[in-house]
Design a protein around this nucleic acid. Structure first.
Lengths: 124, 124
DNA sequence: CGACATATGCCGATGAGCGATATATATATC
DNA sequence: GATATATATATCGCTCATCGGCATATGTCG
């Protein structure tokens, strides 16, 4: 019989840049969705214009993972507004991610400065 | 009539960690596939055990993008071995990626240290 | 009235990465 | 001689974060 086993990933994928920027944008203060898009544009120096499809699905996912929480719901000038805050777990995750990336970037810099033509140092 | 337009992404996705580690592992010297897996384990302090599925498909992709090149093909002790080297474009891409990540990490650190309870500084 | 900023949300498509599997040789252990 | 582990490359199907597009609604500016 065909066993239709469910795919269960063993390792969790490393965080991608949009998610990293999202947590970073929430690190200093709670913000609502639209404000996050603008804040991320500022953080990334105009490079990243986050799509709402990315934003709201990421917010849903991060809520589910417990990395962020809903701070409050309001209606401002007739427009609904949902404000999100970084949860303790999200704060810890962001700090760990920053440490991890700092180490990799340092290693990349080190290697870019110490280039050898071959792995054993030999050269024609 | 149903227009079956082809999906053409406007922006290129940001590099993920496995790719970043791959380029980093090639930054100081050319290496072959299996050596890259081991080198990446060292760089990431044992955290990342790259799968061959990820490795060889990434190598194919990076070759196609011109970020790496085949340095040489050998047969060592009866085993085939293909050695890859970082191309100039790959070197530039890695350097740019490092700059970018350094900036985001610095911003994350800054924000984690300057946390306010709300976006406007008010608190109950 | 039309254009644009504000604000949230859904949906289909894409592709990097993951787990599994296959193949083959060399070396170490029983 | 069998069995396990290290070396080495390669392919396949699956998942999920991200992307682009679309929908909806209000407020403001010209």
């Amino acid at each position: 019989m065909p066993m239709s086993d469910i795919y269960i990933p063993m390792t969790e994928r490393s965080m991608q840049e949009p998610t990293l920027l999202l947590l970073t944008a929430l690190a200093d203060a709670p913000r609502h969705g639209y404000a996050l898009i603008q804040e991320i544009a500022v953080i990334s120096d105009g490079r990243v214009k986050m799509r709402t499809g990315t934003l709201y699905s990421a917010l849903d996912r991060l809520l589910q993972q417990g990395l962020i929480r809903v701070e409050r719901d309001e209606v401002i000038d007739g427009r609904a507004r949902r404000t999100y805050a970084l949860a303790d777990a999200g704060r810890a995750t962001l700090a760990a991610e920053a440490d991890r990336l700092r180490a990799v970037v340092a290693e990349a810099d080190r290697r870019l400065r110490t280039t050898r033509p071959t792995a054993r140092g030999a050269l024609a």
